[in-house]
Design a protein around this nucleic acid. Structure first.
Lengths: 359, 359
DNA sequence: ATGAAAGCGCTAACAT
DNA sequence: ATGTTAGCGCTTTCAT
């Protein structure tokens, strides 16, 4: 340990001790003045603060965490910060955290369990006071259990997890999907596809367990609507693994041939964008040749021609609410876990019409 | 310090000492095995690792940082993570950081100097090994100086800062703006407006110092093109403070009345979106009634009707390159600071046409 | 109100 | 190869 507290350029950090010496008081007194706790006389406080200022003292949050056991930091693990959904949810959480005096550490899981495990490991190692996670899997929950086992408060958002008894904040995906899909069915569509990028080992069948609960619920709502519309084998209309095949490629496949679909429900706005592009590429007009609806009121859905009808989620609020619940837990709230379900709302635009050739 | 290492639920953390005792070795040996450094016999390593596993040992990264002086963490301060530009740049940086074994801590500055100061303070307090920042001001640089003074490596991205001698990664904004604006001027437009949300105390005049260097450079390029086109008083065509007035409101103002502009250069894709909406609201057709160009190849610019002609920036690369430079500095690179200027490239779509009533 | 000293969990000399 | 010990910067008893 030749230069323990040395920075890259070889300069040593200014510590409480340095300030104490400069102010002619004990370390403890200096620390009290600097950390704004305990009792310090005004005169001494001024002297200490002055010295700190002069020396350019910067508190070491790590050392503080070491002795107090609290980091005043929350962690958040999202699929991909570039996804506008996660960006907005993160912003909602960050604002609440900041208002409560907490910092936020962000990690991407890439919707991959191993990457998620690493991300969580890092956060735990950094001793965050609590963790917000949109888990890569609602079924394989060891990653989440490890957080609970480590004794750290955990709040799930966007997705719940089976058998993990913690607070969760999600949207009413099933009813939202039902409403969205009904628009299509009621317009007369029979060949309707649901597209998700969710990774899944096989083709979808009714007994399948879709790893992400939010997607699973949307599928349920979708099936509800098809069933209500008297459409047989509704499960055959669900198409997963769009990431593997490529959204545009899958959309192109579904939109061509004798069995081409006349309507599509996109599981999120990124998928809808791929479908939109594929349709344009094929020379198909929305809504004449294809009716398209999606989740999330992304920027482009309002300015595209035609505007896309979407089910909007209160994304900021999801993040904010999750952060609020987490902070409450960090502060010692011991009530039984709650699951908050936030409403979605329909934004009708011009992307839905009856099918050209009914059937 | 009644329960120093206790977690929220009162459980005590498992430490190196605990593992050492369980494995029947000294703390140092256990630490060596756990931290994967120093020399440990295979037999002992297995024993230690086994014990650690059994006890559920989780390394404390904070303690490690305390003794090594390195956190293996980089900080990044952006204007707003919800802005796709920053989301992408952050992702680029995060990927490079992760590949090099660094974590990333994110803060939003809201393009506000005070908030930025706080954010930087937090990062410094957490002893990040280095800092990436897109500064709220390229002119008032005390925040950045404080980083340099603290001896932490600093890399600027998207924006440079006057008199702060550190690595920077920016895009070729002036030439990009010149090219983009020339499209308009060459098409015959004379009443062309440049819109930015940049806060500025007064109306723009030639001597004004625009706080954000990237915007300042875009303005220069814009003026270059107007001047080359023989347009007088080009500076009167620059409109700042669009955030204060509201982008749509400002666009509406500029697009109506006898002096209505026939073309607009939007300083970023969010502004362009506001202009697009305002135009639609006014019943103006692009490009017949209004030619619109912007920076950044955002999703919507490709699916809107008509497609918007944009100057695309290598956003990921900006973040990635910045992170690379920073990591190099953290590792001790002492070469003089460099400024990397990345090329922009034009994506021509259908939003530019000659003005309806020339002049 | 102030000071002395111990301790947070870890690493790094320095022995052995 | 392993153990002993000091120390990172801070907070917190416990005295005074």
């Amino acid at each position: 340990m030749s230069e323990p507290a040395a920075t890259g350029n070889g300069r040593r950090e200014v510590t409480v001790s340095d300030v104490a010496v400069a102010a002619g008081v004990s370390k403890a007194t200096a620390a009290r003045a600097l950390g704004d706790y305990g009792a310090v006389s005004d005169a001494v406080r001024d002297r200490v603060l002055g010295a700190a200022d002069r020396l350019g003292y910067r508190p070491n949050a790590l050392a503080r965490t070491m002795s107090t056991g609290r980091s005043n930091t929350l962690g958040i693990v999202v699929g991909d910060i570039e996804n506008p959904f996660f960006a907005q949810a993160t912003r909602g959480a960050a604002d609440v955290a900041a208002a409560a005096g907490f910092d936020l550490i962000l990690s991407n899981s890439d919707e991959d369990l191993e990457t998620e495990a690493k991300a969580i490991g890092v956060q735990l190692a950094k001793r965050v006071d609590g963790l917000l996670v949109a888990s890569a899997s609602s079924v394989e929950t060891e990653n989440l259990r490890s957080v609970v086992d480590a004794g750290r408060p955990l709040v799930l958002f966007d997705r719940t997890a089976q058998g993990v008894e913690v607070d969760s904040v999600i949207a009413a995906n099933r009813s939202g999907a039902r409403e969205l899909t009904s628009l299509l069915v009621d317009a007369g569509h029979r060949r309707v596809a649901f597209i998700s990028t969710m990774t899944h080992p096989t083709d979808f069948d009714r007994s399948a367990v879709v790893a992400t609960s939010s997607v699973a619920e949307r599928i349920e709502g979708f099936l509800d609507a098809l069933t209500a519309g008297g459409i047989e084998h509704p499960e055959r209309h669900v198409h997963l693994n769009a990431r593997r095949e490529g959204v545009e490629r899958m959309a192109t496949r579904l939109l061509t041939g004798p069995e081409a679909v006349t309507a599509i429900v996109a599981s999120d706005s990124l998928i809808a964008l791929g479908v939109f592009r594929a349709a344009r590429e094929l020379g198909l007009q929305i809504p004449r040749d294809l009716s398209l609806v999606a989740f999330d009121d992304a920027d482009w859905t309002g300015v595209a021609t035609p505007g896309i009808t979407v089910m909007a989620q209160p994304i900021h609020e999801i993040g904010a609410e999750a952060a609020e619940l987490l902070i409450r837990r960090v502060r010692g709230d011991g009530r039984p876990p709650v699951t908050r379900v936030l409403k979605q709302h329909l934004v009708e635009r011009q992307s839905v019409a009856p099918p050209a050739s009914p059937g």
